[in-house]
Simulated scan of single mutants.
Amino acid sequence: MKFKTDTFVLFIIAVIVLAYFFPQWGSNKSAVPLDTIGSVGISLIFFFYGLKLSPDKLVAGLKNWKMHVLIHVSTFLFFPLVVLPFYPLAKIFQEETLWLSVLFLAALPSTVSSSVVMVSIARGNIPAAIFNASISGIIGILITPLWMGLFLQTSTAGFDLGIIYKKLIVEIMLPVLAGILLQRFGGKYAVRYSKYLSMFDKSVILLIIYKSFAESFEEKIFSNMRWTHLLLLSIIVTGLFFFIYFLTGSIAKRLQFSIEDRITAQFCGTKKSLIHGTVFSKILFSHTAAIGIILLPLMLFHAFQIFFVSFIATKLGKR
């Protein structure tokens, strides 16, 4: 079987290389206001997200409540609970930052577009995938900061949950609500030009990734990181994915889900959103230069989940 290379992953690699050789453009001393551009871009991403949300499809998706519960329990509970027991081990080996980066990955909501696309290829329950992928991002705005706050509040200066939620409301929730309210005027255009809006989303994410890694390279955050760390992170995120994937599938089977619902539960319940991850990291970790390390497991996970799930989806689609 031939695998299609995800060009976005290649762009991410290119941006990180650019940040390595030219970190000065993304440093705090740079004349280019990348923080402001990123903040405006984030708000626009979620405004267009609100424009594309379909209330009818969301209401229709409410019926299959068992599957919805499983997907969101998997996304926001199973993932973090698997990571939590390793905290004492991380403290012993003084790898708290790497562990925190994995917890951040585990606490993130599911991705939207790729979940729906993969479920469609695998011939799963598409309306349910649309419902869960759409709702997951909104739930994540509330849940992800809570998980991170359990450790950041006590270990990191400058973390204030109230300020975090204020930023999330202003930069994310209000634009989403504005998009929903204006859907009758601009919703059809958002759907029609969704391809271009997706390109805009990815451009903003690449900008934030560049800024994050430029700051980390400028502060020499990666100077103590060895290739063994990268290998270890790759093994951890791959193992985490497979554990949750088979756990979700096993529970779905015990609950006697149809094959379509089982596919949707496994695909939506194991995805993590790179868009939400980069956006949340900008808000949650704005006080630290180690943001590049925080994003590293997420980018490894993103690349792997696309590779593996596309393989499984294609195989299931032929049944």
Rank of each mutant, 00 (worst) to 15 (best):
I139N: 02
I138Y: 00
A90G: 11
I138L: 15
E95Q: 15
P88T: 11
A128N: 12
P109N: 12
P109W: 07
V116D: 05
I126P: 10
Y87Q: 13
W99D: 11
S114D: 03
N132W: 10
L161H: 06
L174V: 15
L174Q: 07
S136A: 11
Y165R: 05
L100R: 03
L77N: 01
F79A: 08
L89Y: 11
V82H: 07
S134I: 00
I130L: 06
I163T: 14
V117D: 13
S101E: 03
F151Q: 04
H72C: 06
S74M: 07
V170Y: 12
V116F: 01
L174W: 08
W147L: 02
P85Q: 04
V170F: 15
L168H: 02
M118W: 05
T144K: 01
I169K: 12
F78E: 01
I169P: 12
G137P: 06
S110D: 00
G162Q: 08
G158L: 11
P109K: 04
A106C: 06
T75K: 08
A133Q: 04
L70A: 09
S74E: 04
P145V: 10
Q94N: 11
I71C: 14
H72W: 06
S101K: 02
S74H: 08
Q153P: 04
I135T: 12
A133I: 00
V102P: 10
V116A: 02
D160E: 13
L168I: 02
T75P: 00
L152M: 14
I121M: 07
P109Q: 14
I169H: 11
F104R: 03
I135N: 01
F86Q: 07
T144N: 10
L105F: 05
K91F: 07
L152A: 12
F159D: 05
F93Y: 10
N125V: 01
T75S: 12
V117P: 05
I139G: 01
R123H: 14
V170T: 13
R123E: 10
L174M: 14
W99I: 02
F86L: 15
E96H: 00
L108P: 03
F79M: 15
N125Q: 05
E96D: 12
L89F: 11
S136N: 06
T144L: 02
I121T: 07
S74R: 15
A157E: 13
I143R: 01
I172E: 04
I121S: 01
